[in-house]
Amino acid sequence: MDREKPELNEERRTFIKKVLKGTIAGSLLLVIPLRADDLETSEQIPEHIPEQIPGIRGSEYDMSRHRFVFIVDITRCIGCGSCCVADKREYNVPDGNYRTWVERYIKDIDENIYVDCPNGGLDGYQKPREDIDRPVRDTFFVPKLCNMCEDPSCVQVCPVGATFRSPDGFVLIDSERCIGCAYCIQACPYSVRFLNPVTHTAEKCSWCYHRVRRGLLPVCVHVCPAKARKFGDLNDKESEVYKILSGPGVITVLKRDMGNSPSLYYKGARREVI
């Protein structure tokens, strides 16, 4: 947690002037000429974006060699909702549907649990809950997303094979074949699916398969400022997820008794988390 070193260059004078004038809003008005070659690097060519998951770029992608897992660290989540915002923008998710969301759990001194999730956490949590009259003992946030079950109920029930588990362990949806029957939505124990009101086909979190295949982290993992979301390949012994899962921390999955064997793990989740 090192503070940035103050650079006392010519910026300092401008700064002091601004302080004297009582405004610093002008600091964003610096006009920087755009150069053509800069623009090109800023284009979407993933090679120009540094790799975030090692071992994917370069050689031919072999689906059978990876075992991806997602870990949510509840003890680090600050409930800012960055992940929800990024997710909504990455996929243009229609309002009222959520590929991922962040729940707020509140436990009062009588062990009553109150959960809420206004607008899926998209607006963050600006205010404490006011409808709880007992003293609050504990508060924590729980991000939710697709569990990428090893034995997914959604795949089991899809009548046309439009939702499936790929050889690299991602449960994906073939929106070209989905008939929009919503059976998978009923079957998913975690309620991560919805029927997209625009395409009328089923949709859910894909752990950003398109980014992972480009060697990048899922967008929610990338934007999380608190590093509460972690993603990686368990077959890579150097990965953070491998270290966490093989370490001593308390790791759980949601609704274990459903028998879906999720690949989404929760670190520090209490028993009240459903």
């Binding site: 009548p159 439009a162 008939i179 059976y183």
Partner: peptide, 25 residues
């Protein structure tokens, strides 16, 4: 009327998923 994509209803006959309870319909 219920299906999101009723025009694709024949998919259920073309590729019925053996593990789905609905596919046999």
């Amino acid at each position: 009327f219920h299906l999101g994509r009723p025009e694709r209803n024949f998919n259920i006959m073309l590729t019925p998923n053996p593990s789905s309870a609905m596919a046999g319909f």
